[in-house]
Design a binder for these strands. Structure first.
Length: 478
RNA sequence: CGGGGUGUAGCGCAGCCUGGUAGCGCGCUCGCUUUGGGAGCGAGAGGCCCCGGAUUCAAAUUCCGGCACCCCGACCA
């Protein structure tokens, strides 16, 4: 049954990714170029991401709202850098209701402009600040090269938009939200991320500063997994977002925006997957436990299914799926659920019924040491502990992999070698935008970020030899 | 937009060169035997061969013209 297995990622990472997204039932191809259908299994993963983030947003005082999909074309043009950044990838509606529109409508690529316009009306006084809004939405960017989840023409995300009285408040918000993304990635997705600041070239169009969480994928390429922007007063000035301060003086607000998208699904797939398929982090996995009943004869079935029902009830609060398919053998189901990344497989057969046991097999350890027979008594505790252990073990594994593939480089030659070998180069950097472009042209790598965690000492720039204040992480990226 | 490639069953493909009954694997349906690591046998269902034109007694196959998609380069959460 070769066709049911996925191409091993060690053989061809790119083919592995493209196949697993479909074979694991996360997504289906769509009739529309560059778009995908997110299937229930993939969408439940997204719902887990949404739930984890939304809770954190609410805890920090944000409220959800929804703004229109269509944005008047003129809005985009009000912030010069913003329009320049986005105009090549806009989908524009010019006709509706059988007539040409007076003003074309842009399908939102992001909502800074239409939300900025609303904020300018909502904010009058310093008492209205801070204004902390988030929206869950779809956006459209007409990308030339697309890949499922990583870059699709239409994607789902959340975009937070906030307005503040002072630059310091806006900066604090920007950093706070980046920290929330990092906390979520680490503690729910089991993906170790590096927080840092983007270079000028990689900065969001219209932002003062852009911060990012960068994750290393299984092929050592980097993936920007969430971003947070301090927009300064750029949008406030373009959209006239002003307030009266305590001294009755008109002031421009300081705004921020921050987003995390369905790309995170791609991050989870590529950060944790192995040759056999997905390995889903336990706290986000749609099914945390899959139960595979095993029996030969009808008289065995009754006893087994009775135990299955009892154990499922004991596992209340844990996301459990019972695989009752009758056409497939247990062996097929083992492989199937391994490919789909379910953290724990729980087998119950006639012997277990007799011995009051079940077999627990963990997805992150595929050899025999990952499978154990445990008593049915106290099963909920055993499963709960195992889920936590799997999370910790996946996080540890990903962290070790990442750290062993980051290399300090002292020269441009070394940088090239590291990048070509697929790792991340850490280099002192004080060079120009032009130098950064040159690195990109010559090596295909970009500055992923200037990490928050910086060495104590100072160094010399890898490109120019000048004194450098900070190190940059440089690598190929998705 | 430049270069290369592909459109045939739900999916992956062969057939095309040299025109003549549309095939293979997987999946799907039914039956029997199976079931603790991808089961076996048997019987079935399923086609606008991308679209339009031309040549021909006859076109999946040859010719002309479209369209779509994929891969490689410049943009990107």
């Amino acid at each position: 049954m070769a066709s049911q297995a996925v191409t091993p990622q060690s053989e061809d990472f790119s083919a592995w990714y493209n196949e697993i997204v479909y074979k694991a039932d996360l997504a289906a191809p769509s009739p529309v170029r560059g778009c995908i259908i997110i299937k229930p299994y993939g969408y439940e993963l997204w719902e887990g991401i949404r739930g984890g983030l939304d809770r954190r947003f609410k805890e920090t005082g944000h409220q959800n709202a929804y703004f229109p999909l269509f944005i008047p074309e003129s809005y985009l043009k009000r912030e010069a850098e913003h329009v320049e950044g986005f105009s090549p990838e806009l989908a524009v509606v010019t006709h509706a209701g059988g007539k040409q529109l007076e003003e074309a409508l842009v399908v939102r690529p992001t909502s800074e402009t239409i939300i900025g316009e609303a904020f300018s009306e909502w904010i009058q006084s310093y008492r209205d600040l801070p204004l902390l809004i988030n929206q869950w939405a779809n956006v459209v960017r007409w990308e030339l090269r697309t890949r499922p989840f990583l870059r699709t023409t239409e994607f789902l995300w959340q975009e937070g938009h906030t307005a503040h009285a002072t630059e310091a408040d806006a900066e604090a918000e920007t950093i706070q939200m980046l920290n929330i993304y990092a906390d979520f990635a680490i503690n729910e997705a089991a993906i170790p991320v590096i927080r840092g600041r983007k270079s000028n070239i990689e900065r969001f169009a219209g932002a003062l500063r852009t911060y990012t969480i960068e994750a290393m994928m299984g092929d050592k390429k980097a993936l920007q997994s969430g971003t947070s922007h301090n927009l300064g007063q750029n949008f406030a000035k373009a959209f006239n977002i002003q307030y009266l301060d305590e001294g009755n003086e008109r002031q421009f607000c300081w705004t921020t925006s921050w987003g995390l998208s369905t790309r995170m699904i791609g991050a989870i797939v590529m950060a944790h997957g192995d040759d056999k398929g997905l390995r889903l982090p336990p706290r986000l996995a749609p099914y945390q436990v899959v139960i595979v009943p095993i029996f030969r004869k009808e008289e065995e079935k009754a006893g087994v299914m009775e135990a299955v029902a009892r154990i499922k009830a004991e596992l209340a609060g844990i996301r459990v799926h019972v695989d009752v398919r009758e056409g497939q053998s247990p062996g097929f189901k083992f492989n199937d659920w391994e490919m789909r990344g379910v953290p724990i497989r729980l087998e119950i057969g006639p012997k277990d019924v007799q011995n009051n046991t079940v077999a627990l097999a963990r997805r992150d350890v595929l050899d025999k040491s990952g499978k154990q027979f445990v008593s049915q008594d106290g099963i909920a505790t055993a499963v709960g502990d195992l889920l936590n252990d799997i999370h910790a073990s996946m996080l540890r594994q990903a962290t070790e992999f990442r750290d062993s593939n980051i290399h300090d480089v002292k020269s441009y030659d070394e940088l090239r070698q590291v990048v070509e070998a697929g790792g991340w180069a850490r280099a002192w950097w004080a060079a120009s935008d032009a130098d950064e472009r040159r690195v990109k042209e010559e090596t295909g790598a970009t500055i992923r970020c200037f990490p928050f965690d910086q060495p104590q000492e100072k160094g010399v720039c890898v490109m120019t030899g000048a004194a450098a204040q900070e190190v940059a992480l440089i690598s190929k990226a998705y």
